[in-house]
Design a protein around this nucleic acid. Structure first.
Lengths: 194, 194
DNA sequence: CCCTAATCTGACCGATCGGTCAGCGCCTGC
DNA sequence: GCAGGCGCTGACCGATCGGTCAGATTAGGG
């Protein structure tokens, strides 16, 4: 306890707080549509303070996405490790949906704004991961139909995760959403090897 | 020819040109991420000239979306007119996918940026239309699973329509995409009445 | 207690934002 | 050939953008 921590400059509370707020606002209003001032106001700090913790707006985005990126990379490794045998597909889908649920905000940013933010390294890396995960599900060269099914599953899931319209408030449990998502995604994915 | 046109102040060429360019840029880089200067540069006009044709940036967006809005409204009418008998579902899906294909840029803006742009009347109207189209497919109160399937189908389709990654360039024909989309959307939609 | 370093802030920077306005050239109808 | 309007533009506006910097404030270990 009293000994120095292994890595002294660990992310502190303020840092994590800012990353969470930024992630929410980037997902809801878009990266371009969210200013550092708005983030600072929402967090109760000054804009200068935000820029003290993060070198730039882009760095704030990248560090906010980092945890999701890390887990996405691990998931990709586990996918390529186990060969894509048919009966393991269901387990993969379940893990993948859980990954989306855990990092729903990051997923929404990467998928919905990935096109716009293509020049940001973290975004580019994430898109590369996703591409390779998709490829691992496909035998040989993907057909148009396969790529469209995968795209619909991915983008559709990412959208649903954040859509949460004000009307018909989010009374429904996460479990219910999880179950429905696993159902629809696996239905879309299983059509890929055909 | 020499007689005055029925409605003198019809949309002229420049107007239509600007609307198309704006629609493309809004879809690709986001509404907040696209400046009037960028639109003007892309069109080869000055920013002042853009604002001469359109009262404001918001008006440019609304007028760019107008054709899609109009057709979407007509589609909604045709949906509620014919009762949603099961065997007509396929025809509905086909029409709907064609609508998405025809107005792919507008669809992408409405679905992917609808949350952010909720205070813009045209966007709000479009989201209302889509909600009502969705409701017309559902019997009684929609379950979570039903709403998720519909959300995945809509957002997934909208994403695929604009995704068109630079890699593996858009060699594939529109017909191929259309066929795949009709297939996957109808598969998702037909699960709604269950 | 005091010195240092971490944290936080307001003032300020140049650039760009959406938008206004006066005026330019050009075409057209009289 | 002249008057008038339309299309278009540069200059300019206040506000805000992301980012810098010097200094105030705070916290903590010796």
């Amino acid at each position: 306890m009293s000994s120095i921590q292994p890595i002294p400059r660990i992310q502190n509370d303020v840092n994590a707080e800012l990353r969470l707020i930024a992630l929410q606002m980037f997902a809801e209003n878009g990266y371009a549509g969210t200013s550092l001032q708005q983030i600072a106001d929402a967090a109760g700090y000054s804009k200068s303070s935000v820029l003290y913790h993060f070198r730039s707006k882009e760095a704030l985005l990248e560090e906010s996405l980092a945890p999701a990126l890390s887990e996405l990379g691990e998931f990709l490794d586990s996918v390529v490790a186990r060969a894509s045998s048919d009966e393991l597909r269901a387990a993969f889908v379940e893990e993948f949906v859980d990954l989306l649920l855990e990092h729903r905000l990051a997923a929404h940013i990467i998928i919905n704004q990935g096109q716009t933010l293509a020049d940001i390294p973290a975004i580019d890396a994430a898109r590369g991961y996703i591409d390779r995960i998709g490829e691992s599900f496909m035998s040989e060269l993907p057909t148009t139909k396969q790529r469209i099914r995968l795209g619909v599953a991915l983008a559709g899931a990412a959208y649903v995760l954040v859509a949460a319209r004000p009307s018909t408030a989010e009374i429904e449990s996460v479990d219910e959403i999880r179950e429905a998502l696993i159902d629809v995604v696996s239905e879309l994915i299983t059509g890929l090897s055909a």
